[in-house]
Amino acid sequence: MSAFETTYREAIRQALLDAMQADPDIILIGEEVGLYGGAYGVTKGLIELYGAERVIDAPISEPGIVGVAVGAAMTGLRPVAELMYVDFVGLVMDQLANQAAKSRYMFGGQIGVPMVLRTQGGTGRSAAAQHSQSLEAWMLHVPGLRLVMPATVNDAYHLLREALRQPDPVVVIEHKGLYTMKGVLDVDTPDGEWGQPVIRRAGTDVTILSYSRMLHESLAAAEVLAGQGVQADVIDLRCLNPLDDTMIFESVRRTGRAMVVTEAALTGSVASEIAARIGEACFDWLEEPVLRIGGEDIPIPVSPALERGAIPSAALIAEAGLWLVKREAPAWAP
């Protein structure tokens, strides 16, 4: 039986387990990945299976952890470094952006860095401003890095497996709010090709582009919109780099309307980049401005009431969609 129901967390664990079984060069290194089993339980039990030489509990030295992974990758291992929270990426940005991402290029193609940086981000646990961010735009801005953000259980497995076959550094950003989400894992069948978006719901009136947890808010919004007679094409971007935008442009040229939805603070976000690309490539087909819907440009506050307000909701996406497609203004319209 290759397809079964499981959680996002278990799918990632299964991917690590299967990958480590298939490739003895794969090691895990990070804080609490061994005895503790991972801060969110993703690596539970792996140290018992593969031992302390392959599942390495590191001291609290994030730059060192990533730097060691870079060196191990340069010399023949395939490390999976874990950064407990993407918020800590400020500590490791030199090793990630100046070392991992640039080595192949600077050294004229001689030395690649086939490593994976697993981390997680996003809101939902009242973890406050330093444990709740969505910093994927920082990674997207660095040539040489790959970046994927799984939204589904099946992608949580397959994107990580594929990341572990890539010759270059790949950052995998999971969402802390998705770990307990259930879904079907089919270990033989990925949701789509590496680097290709996936249409999660087909529609003709508006294209909604999203990824990670906001995909689910977008799908919920699409359900609301359907009740109002608006059919949304909901596209899961999944792989932010490499990203083949052909499917995005095809959809927008069909619907004439696009909304890009992200949890990240909007200014300088991935949504801004996607919106710019659509504006350039689909100008003649657009009926309306490309809408970006993102997190407010504020640090994430701890109060659950404020935290929920800081990021887009299905309601906001649906309201904006109705306004965009049917000119039906929401209650908060001026």
């Binding site: 730059p63 060691v68 191990a72 990758a73 340069m74 010399t75 100046n98 070392q99 600077m106």
Partner: peptide, 29 residues
Amino acid sequence: HIADRALGHLGANAIVGGGIPHIVGAGLT
């Protein structure tokens, strides 16, 4: 940023200290 895989040169680095952890990673390998 000179390097040569054949001679084991994993790279000169222009970030002060930037290349130091790479030898620890090599040591792990």
